[in-house]
């Protein structure tokens, strides 16, 4: 007799737990306001990435096309994956002395793991993280970027 009572209590307890689960999904079924999906390509206009978002590495240039990179190569040394290559030139400055300037600051996005060591270690704060995250391209070679803009020069800080 006891086992029969057990049989039915088990049955009803089981059914009630099932109903508890169905209540949760049922609740969400009738509250479409709980939908959390973001409509990605449509919300491009309003989509604002976080200020610190690590999308890619950029070299900020000011309105006079000046950047802060001295070409010291510390970022190149610090990068664990070898995704930064710096080609430097020696150019005579106003006083006639040869000075090192960057020719190309090459950044291989395909190799970058966004560890942030280059940005952190840069002594002249020439590098920063950009918010751009749509990096998909059809050709892998397009992921190799030159960070300094053509014709840009190093910013001479007033010392």
């Amino acid at each position: 007799m006891n086992s029969i009572a057990q049989y039915f209590t088990d049955l009803f307890k089981g059914l009630s737990t099932l109903w508890a689960g169905m209540r949760v999904t049922g609740k969400y079924f009738f509250s479409p306001g709980a939908i959390v999906t973001q409509q990605y390509p449509e919300n491009r206009k309003t989509l604002k990435m976080e200020e610190r978002f690590k999308g890619e590495i950029i070299m900020p240039h000011d309105e006079n096309n000046l950047h802060a990179c001295t070409g010291c190569g510390i970022c190149e040394i610090n990068c664990p994956n070898g995704s930064i290559e710096i080609l430097t030139d020696r150019v005579a400055n106003a006083e006639g002395k040869l000075e090192r300037v960057i020719d190309k600051h090459i950044y291989h996005l395909s190799m970058c793991t966004f560890c942030g060591l280059c940005v952190k270690t840069c002594p002249s704060d020439a590098l920063a993280f950009g918010q751009e995250f749509e990096h998909a391209v059809f050709d892998r070679s397009k992921l190799t970027k030159v960070l300094n803009q053509p014709g840009s020069k190093i910013r001479k800080e007033a010392k």
């Binding site: 307890k13 059914l15 737990t17 508890a20 689960g21 209540r23 949760v24």
Partner: peptide, 9 residues
């Protein structure tokens, strides 16, 4: 808990 933990199955 309602959805999974308590569920008899």
């Amino acid at each position: 808990d309602q959805l999974l933990t308590g569920n008899i199955i």
